[in-house]
Structure formats: C-alpha cells, structure tokens
C-alpha cells in the first residue's frame, strides 16, 4: 500500500520512497527514512495529508503521498 491508502488515525511504517531523487532526500532529511513509523492525522479526498513523523507534523501534497510505499502497523 502507499501512504495515501492509509486513513486518519492509522499508523504505518515507511518501506520505500519512489519519488524524484531530490524529493526523496528532502523527505528523508525530515526524518522519513525507511522503517520510520508514521501516523496519519488528516487527509483530503484530493490527496494532501497531514502526518506525524518523529514527533513533528508535516503536510504532504497529493503526489508525494502516492509515492511513499508503506505497510500497516498496529
């Protein structure tokens, strides 16, 4: 599943980021490295989501949330 498939209140683990090299690095520098736990706080139908990663809230646009491969985490 990609991050976009997760709903508010759910937790996922980042497995892989399939975006442009530059974007991937920027996300990693903000702490979105492989194996990081992410909780979904808000989500709009059109795509953008608010997630909490390493104690920080980040808003991510529609194409980004579709390029992050994740796995459910309970």
């Amino acid at each position: 599943m990609v991050l976009y498939d997760a709903n508010p209140g759910e937790n996922v683990i980042i497995r892989e980021i399939n975006l442009q090299e530059k974007t991937t690095r920027r996300l990693e520098m903000l702490g979105m490295t492989k194996g990081t736990k992410v909780s979904v706080l808000e989500k709009k139908r059109s795509g953008p989501m608010i997630i909490k990663v390493r104690g920080t809230r980040v808003a991510l646009g529609r194409s980004f949330v579709r390029g992050i491969r994740t796995e459910k985490y309970e």
């Binding site: 974007t23 996300l27 953008p48 608010i50 920080t56 980040v58 646009g61 980004f64």
Partner: peptide
C-alpha cells in the same frame, strides 16, 4: 511535479 511539503 512540485508538491506541498510544509511543517505544521
């Protein structure tokens, strides 16, 4: 392909 990325 420039998308939203902003800390809240």
């Amino acid at each position: 392909e420039n998308d939203l990325l902003i800390e809240l």
